[in-house]
């Protein structure tokens, strides 16, 4: 029984970060029916990808970032590979620069997300426009970006709670 509990704990430890990203992607695809919201809904999944890359890269690797992006492409019916590329590159650069953000006060993490999240959305706007050979509406992207930055603390809190639920010391 104890061994089973330990196994469940380990499975949770290994899969929870990825599952949180998938969960947020699915939530983002639900029909919310809020007036004028559909065209500016924030891409929530970008937040945990940023959070794991900066604060717990040992629990969420580059391959997981790639597959999260691919899943988002499939779910949002976007040209395959766009979000996979953006999530992978975002993860790589954040992983390289994490020493400037991790362990610092919360506002540094938030500012970092505002910067990297905006760059990621701009890259997506560019790639989607390139793929459709036509510039798509930019105002919606900007509003979506603002929404995403505003909800960052909530999702970051969720990620933090998940780390506290299964501390890595248990598996060292």
């Amino acid at each position: 029984m104890n061994a089973l509990y330990e196994l469940a704990k380990k499975v949770f430890y290994l899969t929870a970060p990825f599952l949180l990203v998938v969960f947020l992607e699915l939530v983002g695809a639900l029909p919310i029916h809020m007036p004028a919201f559909s065209s500016v809904a924030p891409p929530l999944a970008l937040i945990p990808v940023y959070y794991w890359a900066v604060h717990a890269p040992w629990r969420f690797g580059m391959f997981q970032a790639f597959f999260s992006g691919l899943l988002l492409d499939i779910l949002f019916m976007l040209p395959l590979g766009i979000n996979a590329l953006i999530f992978t590159l975002l993860y790589y650069f954040l992983n390289r620069l994490r020493r400037f953000i991790a362990g610092k006060p919360f506002y540094v993490s938030w500012l970092g997300f505002a910067l990297f999240g905006t760059v990621a959305l701009m890259a997506e706007w560019f790639l989607v426009s390139l793929s459709s050979r036509q510039f798509i509406g930019f105002a919606g992207v900007l509003i979506s970006d603002v929404f995403m930055i505003v909800v960052y603390p909530l999702i970051a809190l969720l990620c933090y709670g998940l780390i506290r639920l299964s501390p890595e010391e248990d598996y060292e």
């Binding site: 983002g28 695809a29 639900l30 029909p31 919310i32 919201f37 559909s38 065209s39 500016v40 809904a41 924030p42 891409p43 779910l75 949002f76 019916m77 976007l78 997506e124 706007w125 989607v128 798509i136 509406g137 919606g140 992207v141 509003i143 979506s144």
Partner: peptide, 15 residues
Amino acid sequence: RVVADPGGAFAQSIL
């Protein structure tokens, strides 16, 4: 019934 409406500035399709 509409089961998914992936919002956002990049997706304009439903399931």
